[in-house]
């Protein structure tokens, strides 16, 4: 009997947290459309989430494309289909790897920092100070991040795709001898606008997940996680893990819906 009671109590705690998390997202969307918009803060966050993530995106995109070039060529040549290396690299990057890997990179680089920043503001009562000045913390801390990520994520993903395709070209064409015309020609024939849009939709929704989870974890530091530095570190770890898992889960859902 006690076991059932404990299970019920734990379930209620998690249900409540899920409710709070859902309301957090709804409130954030609400304040996106309620002026005034903190424009300078949006620009600052675009710089932080977007511009400052480009180097890591270009690096990982390039290597992901190069690996795809090797693996794709190896698999396709066993069936005598190495001419399809271009479409394989292109479709894999544009539909899957580009959005997913970019999102994971942004989670690790920007998402964790956002959680830590908001978490420290929470435990040092800076969020309370904002509220007591009659200023809405959502408008100042959360909304600029959401707008910034919605603008930055598709662009970062596009960069990842382009550099990845060039990485695949480097390996497939320059190293393994596939003709450049075949690589790009077949890619142009098999990749259509629908595939590109699928990648964009995915990157947008992954961006929302990153900001939702990372801001939520920071905002509730000391309430749902421990206090002090340990609380911030816990919140940051949880934010990165939860965002990454949700990105992969949501990727499955979107892929099955858009298939």
């Amino acid at each position: 009997m006690n076991y059932i009671r404990t299970l019920g109590a734990v379930s209620l705690v998690y249900l409540r947290r899920m409710g709070v998390m859902g309301l957090f997202l709804l409130k954030t969307f609400f304040y996106v459309f309620v002026p005034p918009l903190k424009f300078t803060r949006v620009l600052k966050q675009i710089r932080f989430i977007g511009l400052q993530s480009t180097s890591v995106i270009l690096l990982t995109g390039g290597f992901a494309g190069m690996v795809l070039g090797f693996q794709g060529f190896y698999s396709l040549s066993r069936f005598g289909s190495d001419a399809f290396l271009g479409p394989m690299v292109g479709l894999s990057l544009i539909k899957e790897l580009g959005p997913v890997l970019s999102a994971l990179m942004v989670t690790g680089r920007a998402g964790s920092a956002i959680t830590a920043e908001i978490g420290i503001m929470r435990i040092s009562e800076q969020v309370d100070a904002l509220e007591l000045m009659g200023l809405n913390p959502y408008r100042y801390l959360i909304v600029p991040n959401l707008i910034a990520v919605v603008i930055s994520m598709p662009l970062l993903t596009a960069m990842f795709d382009v550099i990845g395709i060039l990485g695949g070209y480097l390996i497939g064409v320059k190293l393994l001898g596939v003709s450049a015309g075949t690589y790009f020609g077949e890619m142009a024939s098999y990749v259509d606008m629908k595939d590109i849009m699928e990648g964009i939709y995915k990157s947008l929704s992954f961006g929302v997940i990153i900001i939702w989870v990372c801001c939520y974890k920071g905002f509730y530091t000391g309430i749902f996680t421990g206090f002090g530095a340990e609380g911030v570190s816990k919140a940051t770890t949880q934010a990165v893990v939860m965002s990454s898992v949700l990105i992969l889960l949501w990727d499955y859902v979107m892929t099955s819906l858009l298939f």
Binding site: S124, E125, Q126, D128, A129, E131, L132, G134
Partner: peptide, 20 residues
Amino acid sequence: DLTSLRDRLGFLFQGGALFD
């Protein structure tokens, strides 16, 4: 209503709560 009342309040936090 809460915002306009808070506009008339001042609060000195224990740690200052300055934006760092």
